[in-house]
Structure formats: structure tokens, C-alpha cells
Design a protein around this nucleic acid. Structure first.
Lengths: 173, 173
DNA sequence: TTTACTGCAAATATTTTGCAATATC
DNA sequence: GATATTGCAAAATATTTGCAGTAAA
């Protein structure tokens, strides 16, 4: 939970102005959540985030975390991902290089892939009438481990079938 | 629910071979679900899909729809999206041009944008050890309606604040 | 004949909501 | 002082799972 609060425009300023503009209140909970989110370079879930805050000695309810993260997404400081069937994952938008995700449809594992030029290409597209804030590119498929597992299962099944087949053949003798 | 079953390799063949390869069973439920999914050009949710099947006279349980759509995703015939907080949306991968999505973070509305060249660019990237099946590109931001709504709310708040301010000024007189 | 699949209902997991107390504006 | 926000717990929603009966291989 440490980031340079002097970089301009720093997240605190952005959030503060966003709250002012929307006539929402500047509460300690909201800024604690902001600081913690900005200090986390990795993905996090509501649950993990709540635990981390708790470990730091903050007690903030889940409901408040949900609502504050929604605000942070709305003002573009945080991205929200829904990869598999599991819960939403969040990540700060600042301080990390443009990347997309390889998502395994079998086991749900997510791997980050950095690609600045593709990121720039996507970010540079303008959509009339739509105020874009961030993008999320996910490539779905099978990860290495699940491919290997599949090959192995395939081989075992084939072996089993051959045994069955030879049993039948032997019986006929 | 009508698509040309003669196109090669047609979805029925792909699915049939997938089931055979994985030593899974060819049940009427699975093929009814396949046909219905392939006959739907738009996005659908489990709920809407279930209703549509029911209306056509098929009765298939939600559990079976979930499990079969998982198989269809696994064999690449169906894409699974998780846009907002709401339930997963599915769409067939065949028979529609490459597109991505503009997702409103405020109201959740999703708009499709066709872009063959970007789609080709993304599809052509190879990831060592990862067997890519399909991609999902979502641009998050504010849709036209929500931008308008925001401007309107902003103006009203400002007006209200001015009134309060002039009340205070008047009182001081 | 073996065992995977289906439907149903119950269980689980995640996110949202209502309400009284509190704190910001 | 008016009202948005908080925490808690309950509610709503989506998805998964267990089990007994059925059907594909």
C-alpha cells in the first residue's frame, strides 16, 4: 500500500474531483479503499481485497467495498474483469503496462500478456457517442496444463478401449 | 432454429466428433441445445435460452443447459461472455462477422461493433503453449444515454446549489 | 451391463438491498 | 440540519451439486 501520491494527476485527486463533481461524500472508507486498490499491482477479488484491508487493520464492510469499487470503475481508476464463472476481479488502471489475458476455459486460469502496440491500437479507436474508459481483451482457450491433461486422458481411454476390444476378440477364440 | 446442416464441417459434425473424442454420449438433449444455439444469431442468456427451448416444446433442465453449453464452449462452437454483473451471455461463434463490444459501466448496455481487420489482427497472434479458441474484446465506458443523463444531473445539482447559495446570501441581507 | 446423463431440488456463492445509526456537507 | 453513507444481516440471483431414475455405449 504505497504509491507516489505526488504524481499528477494522482489517483486521490482524480477520485476527489470525481466525488465532488458527482456530489458524493469524501469518507475515510472510500479513501482507504482507493489507497489500497492503488497500492495493489495485481488482480484482486472483493474477498481478497476485504481480507487484505482487514489484515491492515481497516474494517470496512463488503457492501462498502462493492459500492466504492463501482465508483472507482466509474471514474476509470479501476478495471473490472469477469473471466470465468467465479467472482469479479479488479485491477488498478494506472501503473501497469497495457496487457490482455489468456483465459483457460477448462480450469479458469488467467495469464497476463503484455502487448503495448496492440493496446495502443485498441485504445486509439474512437466510437461516436461512446465515452470509452478502458478495454478488456480476453483470449479463451486451453492452457498448457489442460492440453496435456486432455492428451493423457485421450491416450488412457484409447488404451482401455483396445483392452476391451482384445477381450472381446479373445472371448471369440 | 434453421441453419444449413450441409455446410462442412457443420456444427453437428464438430460436436459429434468432439463428443466421440471425449467419450461423451450423444443425447437428444445435447443436440437439441446445439441446434437451438446454432439457430440463434444474437446473444442469449441461460434463462432466455431455456424459455426459447420451452416455447419450442423442448423441455430440458437448466442443469443440462449449463453443462451442454460448457461443452459447446469447450469445443469452440459457442462463446461465453461475462459483461457486467448480470448473468453470462452466450453466442454462437459461427455465422457472424468478427466484432467486439461497447459495454456501459453505468447501465450495463452492450453494443456490438463489427471490425474485421482488428479481429483478424487479434486472431492471428499465436501464444506458445496456449491453444486459443476465440477472443472477447470489450470496451468499457459510458453509453450515449448515460452521458446525457450525467450532464443533466450535473446541471440540476449546480442549479440547486446556486439556489442554496442565493438563499444564504438573501438571509445575510 | 456398465456407467454417463438427465431432471429435480437443495446447496453454494456472489452481489444487492433495507434499515437504523452515523458522519459529511 | 438534511441527507448520503456505513455496517450488518437478510434477500435476491446465478450457478453448481447430489441423487435416483433413465438411457447410451
Amino acid at each position: 500500500m504505497s504509491y507516489d501520491k505526488n504524481i499528477k494527476p494522482c489517483p486521490r485527486e482524480i477520485f476527489s474531483e470525481y466525488l465532488a463533481k458527482h456530489h458524493k461524500r469524501r469518507t475515510p472508507e472510500r479513501f482507504a479503499i482507493l489507497d489500497s486498490a492503488m497500492g495493489t499491482p495485481d488482480h484482486f477479488t472483493i474477498e481478497s481485497f476485504h481480507d487484505a484491508l482487514e489484515a491492515e487493520g481497516f474494517h470496512v464492510s463488503l457492501a462498502t467495498i462493492y459500492s466504492t469499487l463501482e465508483l472507482l470503475v466509474d471514474c476509470g481508476l479501476v478495471r473490472r474483469h469477469r473471466f470465468g464463472s467465479d467472482s469479479a476481479r479488479y485491477e488498478r488502471t494506472t501503473g501497469s503496462a497495457s496487457h490482455h489475458h489468456l483465459v483457460c476455459t477448462r480450469c479458469g486460469k488467467v495469464k497476463e500478456v503484455k502487448d503495448a502496440s496492440l493496446g495502443d491500437a485498441i485504445s486509439s479507436i474512437r466510437y461516436p457517442g461512446f465515452a470509452a474508459s478502458y478495454f478488456s481483451l480476453n483470449i479463451y482457450g486451453l492452457c498448457r496444463a489442460c492440453q496435456k491433461r486432455e492428451r493423457k486422458a485421450s491416450a488412457e481411454k484409447a488404451k482401455k478401449n483396445n483392452q476391451t476390444l482384445s477381450n472381446i476378440r479373445n472371448r471369440k477364440k
